[in-house]
């Protein structure tokens, strides 16, 4: 049975697509069959982050409407053969997706893939609800910042009440906290909520902490998920996330600021 994982947040711009791309690719690199689905109907972006934007022919809504088969719409990743991407459509209206037709597509994908990663749109509208409805697990992507934490809490409420698992009274969705754009230096200076603060407020298990990193922008510029940048802190942190998802116990890193020498402390910089 495929594990259906939704990457969600409520708030926009916190790193859902970056995280979906990195985690999806990371799982595929470990030899698992992975499909990444872009649920952001109208605002397709996962293709760009994955670097396959010029290979999009058919999309999710084409499949739903029977205008293309799933195999026609799926884009095979050029780097890892066990990874596929199902792009969102750009022009169709959001109401194209409903529980029934999305359920059918997921069921079909579940026959082939080990992991189905659903990249949710921002907000709490129909699109976001559709992305989380069938999830077994949720990666709640959060920035250490007040509006993001509050929105994450709202999404946790939705996961607990509006998902298929909630409606059928099944075991609840397994929730994971992914803290992104973390700056240990600012935390130490009392300018940013710490990991512990966010854990205290949201009280869900921590899956990973991704440090604020210039590598993320470079990765999206190039269309190469940041996990491929194995030298970068963000790349390493995503690798840890993947290992944890696969059940390994990995110590958290990049939680403290690099210690500066006495000279740079005294003279700034």
């Amino acid at each position: 049975m495929a594990r259906i994982i939704v990457v969600t947040s409520g708030k926009g711009g916190v790193g859902k697509t970056t995280s979906s791309a990195a985690i999806g690719l990371g799982l595929a690199l470990k030899g698992h069959k992975v499909v990444l689905i872009d649920f952001d109907i109208g605002l397709r972006n996962l293709d760009l982050i994955m670097g396959c934007e010029r290979r999009v022919v058919y999309d999710f809504v084409n499949v739903i409407n029977g205008e293309a088969t799933l195999n026609q719409a799926l884009i095979k990743d050029k780097r890892v053969s066990s990874l596929s991407i199902l792009p969102a459509s750009q022009t169709r209206d959001k109401d194209a997706l409903n529980k029934e037709n999305v359920g059918k597509v997921l069921e079909e994908l579940g026959k082939t893939y080990d992991y189905i990663i659903c990249d949710s749109p921002a907000g709490i509208e129909a699109g976001a609800m559709m992305a989380l409805y069938y999830a077994d697990e949720a990666i709640v992507t959060t920035n250490p910042e007040v509006s993001s934490v509050r929105d994450s809490d709202r999404i946790l409420g939705m996961l607990a009440s509006r998902s298929r698992r909630a409606e059928l009274g099944l075991e609840p969705i397994k929730e994971h906290l992914l803290l992104t754009r973390y700056s240990p230096k600012r935390v130490e200076e009392g300018e940013m909520l710490s990991v512990e603060d966010v854990e205290d407020i949201l009280s869900i298990p921590l899956l990973g902490v991704i440090p604020e990193s210039q590598a993320v922008l470079k990765a999206s510029n190039a269309g190469e998920p940041v996990i491929l940048d194995t030298e970068s802190d963000a790349g390493k942190a995503y690798q840890d996330v993947v290992d944890r998802l696969l059940g390994e116990t990995v110590e958290f890193r990049f939680l403290t600021a690099e210690k500066k020498g006495i000279f740079s402390r005294m003279f700034g910089g």
Binding site: R150, G190, E191, S194, D200
Partner: peptide, 25 residues
């Protein structure tokens, strides 16, 4: 200055609003 950092203010405000919103939910 460490006693009242902006981060601790943020945490306090969040704890109150999140508890309130959970309650309403």
């Amino acid at each position: 200055e460490k006693q009242v950092t902006t981060a601790s203010k943020a945490k306090e405000r969040l704890q109150i609003i999140v508890a309130h919103e959970r309650n309403n939910r």
